[in-house]
Design a protein around this nucleic acid. Structure first.
Length: 514
RNA sequence: GCGGGUAUAGUUCAGUGGUAGAACCUCAGCCUUCCAAGCUGAUGACGCGAGUUCGAGCCUCGCUACCCGCUCCA
């Protein structure tokens, strides 16, 4: 395996375009910042990753601590929801803070996070400092011989923008370096209906998670599920990122794979550990080198205010090497979301846990404890992975420069993820070989994603498949009509061996499972 | 949003203010019994918009996109 430091993102981006994995969106109009299109091979790879996640999460979920598969159902909620949803979730407030920039230090501050020492006289310079940290400008004040008693503290939003020319920014020497506040709303806005009116403003979802919380009760009422259980969803989300970068790593339109796991409050920590392990196992199952994956626990000051614990699974991307970059976050969200929606929608999110009630009674608990154990708003463990980032990770991981090959590079996808599972080639385009090859292709194309190609030299065809990441090539040669065998060429070793035509199906079936 | 860099064919690169080139890819034909072979052809580009100039791929300005570094990432 080539280490990430030897992988050039430029070369990977070139290959992605040359071979139809990823194209710049709106390419012929000069592109559009933060958006990408997935080409024929890219969407095939992305769908295969997506299907693996769905299979592993919804259709064939992991075995829980009790030896039985855990209970998870699927969902596909709307991208646009009632705007009240995003008010309740905190995204409207949290995503739209006005920011001011300092043109001297190039630092950016939330407007409401800056405080000022303002002369009571109403004239003269005002000194800005980060919220609750007046000490940070102590030296500057001393130099300016500021007498504190002549000043009062106000927050930046309290003073008019016309006075900004008298404001000395925190790390700045001169006054007037702060720009007027500008809104950085990370949510994309749209208007419902033909008439563009503020009352009809709506948002494209910045995460798929809220769609799950909105349907928590619907699922509970219809699917005969009992806590603990999960709801899984895959879909597009949109964030108006300030600075999209690193190819498809941070884009404005991206795809998420999210699971919300609902459980009793006192089991949350156990399930958090469970999902932490399970999620890592899934990433490893995609064939990612364990050395390129790590857990990174969030520090206490890094946690969102509602979260009790959060860990990221990170991958060593070529552009983060030797460091890592985020792939998936597993968050212990407590009951924050359901409580928020309960308060805003006035819909009860409480769960009555009959089994817990029985157990509590049998344990001889008092009435209060029995009630507490049996009636609660579930806690939530949220493994939230990026499908688009998964695609990038798989592309980076598979990308393997090899100077000994005609193609100079080979994409080493696992067989069950590869956009093309196998190619069928007649060695030469005559002597009855194409007929045999097409026969194999026609017979197996319903079960596998195959490509038939008879054009040009065999070496050229192998090289093309190396760049597309096709793990196996079956070649029909002059011996085939006599002994009914074909050669199998292995992408990773470039070596060949013969197998019987009748065994091709079996061979592929076995490889797809491994 | 800031600073720096870059923008010529699908890709990677040449190109002195004066007729836009190559290699690879792709496609067609011939050839071909295992790794982009050989031969003959073909398609295909100066990111967008202004300006300077007799004349701009080249100089100037604006815009857009991409890369690197900050910033941001509830």
């Amino acid at each position: 395996m080539t280490s990430p430091e030897n992988k050039s993102m430029d070369e990977l981006v070139s290959l992605c375009k040359r071979r139809g994995f990823v194209f710049p969106a709106s390419d012929i109009y000069g592109g559009i910042n933060g958006f990408w299109d997935y080409g024929p091979l890219g969407v095939a790879l992305k769908n295969n990753i997506r299907d693996s996640w769905w299979r592993n999460t919804v259709e064939c979920p992991p075995i829980g601590p009790d030896g039985e598969p855990v209970s998870i159902v699927g969902l596909d909620s709307a991208i646009i929801q009632n705007p009240k949803v995003w008010k309740a979730s905190g995204h409207v407030d949290g995503f739209s803070d006005p920011m001011v920039d300092c043109t001297e230090t190039k630092k950016r501050y939330r407007q409401d996070h800056l405080e000022l020492l303002v002369p009571k006289s109403g004239e003269g310079l005002m000194y800005a400092f980060p919220e609750n940290q007046p000490d940070l400008i102590a030296a500057k004040l001393k130099q300016a011989r500021v007498d504190h008693s002549l000043f009062e503290t106000v927050t930046l939003p309290e003073i008019p923008v016309s006075s900004y020319d008298r404001v000395v920014a925190p790390d700045s020497k001169n006054a007037g370096t702060l720009t007027p506040p500008r809104a950085f709303n990370l949510m994309f806005e749209t208007y419902i209906g033909a008439i563009r009116h503020e009352d009809h403003k709506a948002y494209l979802r910045p995460e798929t998670a809220q769609g799950i919380f909105l349907n928590y009760k619907n699922v509970l009422d219809t699917m005969r599920v009992k806590i603990p259980f999960g709801i899984a969803q895959i879909g597009k989300s949109f964030r108006n990122e300030v600075a999209p970068k690193n190819f498809i790593f941070r884009s404005r339109e991206f795809e998420q794979m999210e699971l919300e796991w609902f459980c009793p409050p006192d089991e949350a920590q156990t399930w958090y550990q469970f999902w932490k392990e399970q999620r890592m196992l899934w990433w490893l199952s995609l064939g990612i080198n364990a050395n390129n994956l790590i857990f990174r626990d969030h520090d206490a000051d890094e946690l969102a205010h509602y979260s009790n614990a959060c860990v990221d699974i990170e991958y060593r991307y070529p552009f983060t090497f030797p460091g890592f970059g985020e792939l998936e976050g597993i968050a212990h969200r407590g009951n924050y979301d359901l409580t928020a929606h309960q308060n805003h929608s006035r819909t009860k999110m409480e769960y009555f846990d009959q089994a817990a009630q029985l157990a509590a009674k049998e344990a001889g608990l008092d009435k209060e404890d029995i009630a507490r154990k049996s009636r609660y708003i579930p806690h939530v463990i949220e493994p939230a992975g990026g499908l688009t980032r998964a695609l990038l990770t798989i592309l980076c991981e598979a990308f393997t420069p090899d100077e000994t090959r005609p193609s100079k590079v080979v994409m080493k996808f696992k067989p069950n993820l590869a956009p093309i599972t196998a190619a069928i080639f007649p060695l030469i385009n005559k002597d009855g070989l194409p007929e045999i090859a097409r026969g194999i292709y026609q017979k197996l194309r319903q079960k596998y994603t195959l490509q038939y190609d008879a054009k040009q030299s065999i070496g050229k065809r192998y090289a093309r498949m190396d760049e597309a990441g096709t793990p196996y090539c079956f070649t029909i040669d002059g011996d085939t009509p006599q002994d009914h065998s074909v050669t199998v060429r292995d992408r990773d070793t470039a070596e060949q061996h013969r197998i019987a035509i009748d065994r091709v199906d079996e061979f592929l079936a076995e490889k797809m499972l491994s």
